[in-house]
Write a protein that binds this DNA or RNA. Structure first.
Lengths: 179, 179
DNA sequence: GTTCGCATGTAAAGAGTTACATGATTGT
DNA sequence: ACAATCATGTAACTCTTTACATGCGAAC
């Protein structure tokens, strides 16, 4: 069986929602799974092309006056099976989250105490903004798609983001004190 | 001023410790900053070569009988400056941690409840192992390099790992209950 | 008149992993 | 005999970002 990368599976998954064009997929990513899976146009369009070539999706092109043709992709039965097959597999190993702040702090001996504190305060501030962004998305989902069958799962992922961000903020505060 | 990527800065930083050869650098990474910054030989050796070419490090080659020459790299003044320059800069933006488990759970509607629970239980188990690994490294540092001037900072990064992992484990438990 | 949103895409560069090649010594 | 440790490195491949190209309509 052919293998695909996780970005391909993400796109396969998004095609099961109301999104069917490359543009819509990008929009969807940017305001829902952006915190744990970013994808650029440079990946989306070639991937969609490949999905069609390999029989995982079909294209429906609709011409629009004054605009480029709008290409809508729909999963085939094979596409749905491939997605389900991936969903069933547990992850092989935990990914390593590359963290630039930790990397800098790791070599903190070569910095002044003030610089380390500045680094952590800046990080904390960015984390707080992220936390607020999570809350905003959460409210958006709660309002607009309360009865949506996907909403429950989207909330779970937001809850993860909030909990982990909260822990990171607490670490910033504790570390600043100890420095 | 020339720009380098974070992996290059990581190697620059490691060269300030007792590690000076490619092999030692790899060892060091594998049992200290492996949780938040992995690097493979395929990156280490070409990077070291480039450091020398650009005057950030000098090489001292020592021949050993029956073994390949051992190349030891030492930071030049310029190398130290480049490292410090990087340490001073705050991070531009928070990195996105790509999380395969969240991605799968996001599309959980296409799975059975049992499958989702299995996914999270497996994830939780892996996180618990990671937590134990952090504790083991922590003990190692506490025993062997108590008076080491880097040890304090290494402990901070481990504390981060522990806190965030703890939060993720708690999320797994809460989400399994809610599913 | 310029920017934003819609809508498609490509090319090149950069980042990173994996698999391979070499070869001596030491331990099981 | 075989695997592991020490020790270097490269080539091919995959993945991802960035910058570019095109072009209409609407708002400001």
């Amino acid at each position: 069986m052919q293998k695909y990368n996780d970005t391909t599976y993400a796109i396969l998954g998004i095609l099961t929602t109301h999104c069917h064009s490359g543009y819509e997929i990008k929009q969807f990513i940017d305001n829902s799974l952006n915190h744990f899976w970013k994808i650029s146009y440079g990946q989306i369009y070639p991937t969609l092309k490949r999905l069609e070539e390999e029989g995982l999706a079909t294209i429906q092109t609709s011409s629009q006056e004054g605009k480029p043709d709008r290409k809508e992709y729909f999963l085939t039965e094979k596409g749905k099976e491939v997605l389900k097959g991936w969903l069933e597999q547990p992850l092989k190993q935990l990914p390593v989250e590359r963290n630039e702040v930790l990397l800098k702090l790791f070599f903190g001996r070569h910095q002044t105490k003030k610089q380390s504190i500045l680094l952590l305060e800046d990080y904390k501030q960015k984390l707080e903004k992220l936390y607020q962004a999570y809350e905003a998305i959460e409210e958006g989902i709660a309002c607009h798609s309360n009865n949506h069958s996907d909403a429950k799962y989207w909330m779970f992922t937001l809850d993860y983001g909030k909990r982990v961000t909260e822990a990171a903020i607490a670490w910033c505060e504790a570390t600043i004190k100890e420095l």
